[in-house]
């Protein structure tokens, strides 16, 4: 399908609210982490938000970890 319109793609196909809701920023063990809700209700770490380089060496904050 080819669209020929001055509207942006996001105006034509708006992102669903549930896609926004899936991603959350939470405090986990005193550090901010960005998580994605899994279908089974658990959360998977997407990204660690910290400036301490040592936090990135901590296994419990590795992206992909289920919390």
């Amino acid at each position: 399908m080819i669209l020929y319109t001055p509207l942006s793609e996001s105006d034509i196909y708006p992102t669903e609210q549930k896609d926004y809701d899936k991603c959350q920023t939470v405090n986990y063990q005193g550090r901010m982490v960005q998580v994605e809700k899994q279908d089974d209700g658990s959360f998977r770490i997407l990204q660690l938000l910290s400036t301490d380089p040592n936090d990135y060496l901590d296994n419990s904050f590795t992206p992909g970890e289920i919390i």
Partner: peptide
């Protein structure tokens, strides 16, 4: 591996 506290943050 884990390391001691860093004086540089990123």
């Amino acid at each position: 591996p884990t390391a001691p506290d860093s004086n540089i943050h990123v």
